[in-house]
């Protein structure tokens, strides 16, 4: 029984590790130069952007939101995300810490110029809004045959 359990554990932690390494090497290795529209640490929501040949992926770390109340627009390659998170405290409690964001937010991001605003997919899971924006066909790298 222990053998089975520890095997399972190892596999699970192995998967965590692999995933963490993937994300950490991907996003941790960015150079020190910050984007013109970037914000300071602790801003809500935090955003990561990744690009691959076919699409641009935007991850908006926005826990505790009602996705129906999010306002997302993409004009050319300018992505605008606005929303609100208002959480009121129960009456008569003693408050010790209030670090979590409370209020309205609006963030504007510049995506690569070749994104197609017509082809956007959005999903919200575990507090992460994931937007996939397709890149235009003509700019995808194409293999050139040498005759």
């Amino acid at each position: 029984m222990w053998g089975y359990l520890s095997g399972f554990d190892n596999d699970l932690f192995g998967q965590f590790d692999r995933m963490r390494r993937e994300m950490d090497t991907l996003f941790g290795a960015l150079s020190g130069s910050a984007g013109i529209r970037s914000t300071t640490i602790g801003t809500y929501p935090a955003i990561n952007i990744g690009a691959s040949a076919k699409q641009v992926d935007v991850y908006v770390f926005a826990p505790g939101l009602d996705p129906a109340k999010l306002d997302i627009s993409l004009q050319q390659n300018l992505l605008c995300i606005a929303g609100q998170r208002h959480e009121s405290l129960p009456d008569g409690v003693q408050l010790y810490r209030r670090e979590r964001f409370n209020g309205d937010f609006r963030r504007v991001l510049t995506l690569p110029e070749d994104v197609d605003p017509e082809k956007v997919e959005a999903s919200y899971r575990d507090g992460v809004l994931h937007l996939s924006v397709a890149r235009r066909e003509e700019v995808k790298p194409r293999r050139i045959e040498v005759k």
């Binding site: 996003f27 970037s38 990561n48 690009a51 691959s52 641009v56 690569p112």
Partner: peptide, 13 residues
């Protein structure tokens, strides 16, 4: 994350 993704911008590292 899709295959072959490169990071463009990251608040969370």
């Amino acid at each position: 994350m899709p295959e072959g993704m490169e990071a463009l911008y990251a608040d969370l590292r």
